[in-house]
Simulated scan of single mutants.
Amino acid sequence: MPHPDQPLTNDDDEEEDLLNEEDEDLLEWAATAELYAVGYIRILADAIERGDADLQVDPGAWENTLTAAEGAMLEHIRGRLHGPTAITAGDVERMRRLRELGSAALLGGGRPPELGPLALQCMESLFGSDWKRAARVAESHVRALNQAFHPRSGTQ
């Protein structure tokens, strides 16, 4: 071990704390799923709050993204991922409920009053008190993605 006053170099015997490729892929997948989920949640919640007839989210994209976010949240619970918040089983259940209610609304079903507050809780469970900033960033990414892949979804 080098003297405390000497800088560490790559030649030192200390190993760096690096992620293996599988863990890096999981982390990238989870971060992307959570970010896009917050974007879709924000778009849907805002459209419902305004009373828009068009909820501006592709139903398939909603289902796939929120299902992926649930999976990422489970990886947090298993301890394989860490984020700005401590994800609980209750958070995963709320996300699952939001996915179901949102899917029903996107397919022309009702818009229960709990949908808006549930959306806010889910965004906060993923990003903590910084969820508003994360939601703004995510919304712009989702709109760009939808414009490229779902041009008729109305998300513009």
Rank of each mutant, 00 (worst) to 15 (best):
R80S: 13
E49Q: 14
V92F: 05
E21F: 08
G109T: 14
Q121N: 14
P112A: 12
R42Y: 08
H76K: 06
L27R: 15
V38Q: 13
P117A: 04
L81W: 07
A61V: 01
E49D: 15
N20E: 12
V57T: 04
A37G: 04
A89W: 11
L120V: 13
A37S: 15
L126V: 12
W131P: 05
A37Y: 00
I87C: 02
A30S: 15
C122M: 05
A89T: 02
L26D: 03
E24W: 11
V38S: 11
I43D: 03
L98R: 10
I41W: 02
V57K: 07
A105E: 03
I48C: 14
G116K: 06
A53L: 13
V92Q: 01
A30M: 09
L35V: 01
L101V: 05
G116V: 08
P112L: 14
E28P: 06
A138E: 07
F127K: 09
L44Y: 12
T65V: 01
G102T: 08
L126Y: 00
S125E: 02
L66W: 04
S103Y: 03
R42N: 13
A37D: 06
L101M: 15
R78S: 04
G51Q: 02
E24Y: 12
R80N: 08
L27Q: 10
N64R: 04
Q56I: 09
S103H: 05
D58H: 10
E139F: 13
M123T: 06
A138I: 02
H76F: 09
R80A: 07
G102E: 05
L55P: 02
E28W: 14
G71F: 00
R80P: 04
A69M: 00
I87W: 01
L44F: 09
W62H: 04
K132Q: 15
I43L: 06
L120Y: 10
A33G: 01
S125L: 10
E70I: 05
D91N: 14
R94C: 04
L35D: 07
M123K: 11
L126A: 03
D46Y: 10
A138Y: 01
P112H: 15
M123R: 12
A45F: 02
R99D: 02
M95C: 11
G39W: 02
A68C: 03
W29Q: 12
A68V: 00
D130H: 13
R136L: 14
A37N: 04
D91V: 06
L118P: 09
G116D: 07
E49N: 11
M123H: 04
E22A: 07
G109L: 10
L106F: 04
H82F: 09
D130I: 11
A53P: 00
A104Q: 14
A31D: 15
A53I: 15
A135E: 06
N64E: 05
M73I: 01
E28I: 08
G108L: 03
D52V: 08
L44W: 12
G83L: 05
P59Q: 04
R50K: 12
